[in-house]
C-alpha cells in the first residue's frame, strides 16, 4: 500500500509534465495554424515555451497584495486539479491520475474554481480593464454553464453514473457507442459550451485585445504571467481531455488521445478564425438561446429513454 501511494504520486507528476508539454505544443501548433490562415509564417511551435521561460526569467516582480499573489496560484490549482481528476487514458495505470468514482461533479466544479480565484486576484490589481474583464468573464461563464451543466445532467441520466471512468467504459467498442452518436443533443450543447470555455473568437470577450487590451491579467507580469500561461496550456488540454472522455469515447493510448483532443480543439480554432468577436450581451444571449434549449431537450430525451 505504501508503495502504491508513492507510485500514484509519481505517475501524477509524470502525467502533469506530459500535459504541460502537450498543452504548450498544442498552443504553438494552433498559433501556427492561425498564422497560416492569415497568410503568415507564424512563430515556431515552441514559441510558448520561450515566452514562459522569458517571463519566469524576469528579474523584478511587484505585488499588489495577497489576493493578487494568490490569483495565479488559484488558477494553476484549478488547472492541475481539473486535470488530475480526469482519467486521461482509459485502462492506463499511469494516466488514470487520481480519479475516483464521483469525479464528474468535482471536475465540473474545478473548471470554474480557477476562474473565480483569478477574478479575485485581478480585482486586487486595481486596473480598470481587469475589473471589466472579470465582469465580462464571469457573466459569460454563467451563461455557458447552463448548456454545459444540462449536457452533463443528460449524460448522467443516460449512463446512470457520475464516474468518468464508467462513462468511458460504456463507450468502448466502436464509434457507434460514443456519446456523440448515442446522445447527439447533449454533445452539441457540450461542444457549444466548450467554444465559450476556450475563449477563441467569437467568444473571446474576456481578453478582447482591441477593447480592453488584455482583460484580467493586465497587471500580471513576470513569473505571475508565466504561471498563468502554463495554466492556460494545462487547463486547455484538461478540458479537451474531459470532453474527449465524456463525448468522444475516450482514448486507450496516448496517440489516440493526442489525435482526438487535437481534432476537438480544431472545432474551436476553425470557428475562431472564421468569426469576429461577439459583444458581451450578444455572447450571453447566444448561450441562453439555442444551446440552452438543446441542453433542456437532451435532458428530457434522456429521461424518456431511461424511462425514469
Amino acid at each position: 500500500m505504501e508503495n502504491s501511494i508513492f507510485l500514484t504520486i509519481l505517475y501524477a507528476v509524470i502525467s502533469v509534465i506530459f500535459i504541460t508539454v502537450y498543452g504548450l505544443f498544442l498552443n504553438g501548433v494552433v498559433i501556427k495554424i492561425v498564422a497560416r490562415v492569415h497568410g503568415r509564417f507564424g512563430p515556431p511551435v515552441w514559441q510558448p515555451f520561450l515566452d514562459i521561460i522569458k517571463n519566469n526569467a524576469k528579474r523584478t516582480m511587484i505585488s499588489h497584495g495577497i489576493m493578487y499573489f494568490l490569483g495565479p496560484v488559484f488558477r494553476i490549482t484549478g488547472g492541475i486539479g481539473t486535470y488530475l481528476f480526469i482519467p486521461a487514458i482509459y485502462g492506463s495505470v499511469m494516466f488514470s491520475n487520481l480519479s475516483f468514482s464521483g469525479d464528474l461533479l468535482l471536475v465540473v466544479y474545478f473548471i470554474f474554481f480557477g476562474q473565480l480565484g483569478m477574478a479575485l486576484g485581478a480585482g486586487e490589481s486595481g486596473h480598470p480593464y481587469s475589473a471589466i474583464g472579470v465582469s465580462r468573464g464571469l457573466s459569460q461563464m454563467t451563461a455557458f454553464e447552463f448548456p454545459f451543466a444540462l449536457s452533463i445532467v443528460s449524460l448522467v441520466i443516460q449512463y446512470q453514473t457520475l464516474s468518468i471512468s464508467a462513462i468511458v467504459a460504456a463507450q468502448q467498442g466502436g464509434i457507434l457507442n460514443w456519446t456523440m452518436i448515442t446522445n447527439p443533443l447533449a454533445t452539441l450543447a457540450g461542444v457549444i459550451a466548450l467554444l465559450g470555455m476556450n475563449m477563441h473568437s467569437p467568444f473571446d470577450i474576456v481578453i478582447a485585445p482591441q477593447e480592453i487590451p488584455i482583460g484580467p491579467p493586465t497587471e500580471y507580469h513576470s513569473a505571475f504571467l508565466g504561471m498563468l500561461q502554463t495554466n492556460r496550456a494545462i487547463f486547455n488540454a484538461a478540458k479537451l481531455i474531459l470532453f474527449m472522455n465524456i463525448f468522444f469515447g475516450g482514448a486507450t493510448n496516448i496517440f489516440l488521445l493526442i489525435l482526438k483532443t487535437f481534432l476537438i480543439y480544431m472545432i474551436s480554432v476553425v470557428i475562431g478564425v472564421s468569426f469576429p468577436r461577439f459583444r458581451t450581451e450578444q455572447s450571453i444571449r447566444f448561450f441562453l438561446k439555442y444551446p440552452l434549449l438543446i441542453g433542456i431537450l437532451s435532458v428530457v430525451i434522456s429521461i424518456f429513454r431511461q424511462g425514469v
Partner: peptide, 9 residues
C-alpha cells in the same frame, strides 16, 4: 501578413 514580425517571436 506582409512583414509578419511574429515569426521572429
Amino acid at each position: 501578413s506582409r512583414y509578419d514580425m511574429y515569426r521572429y517571436g
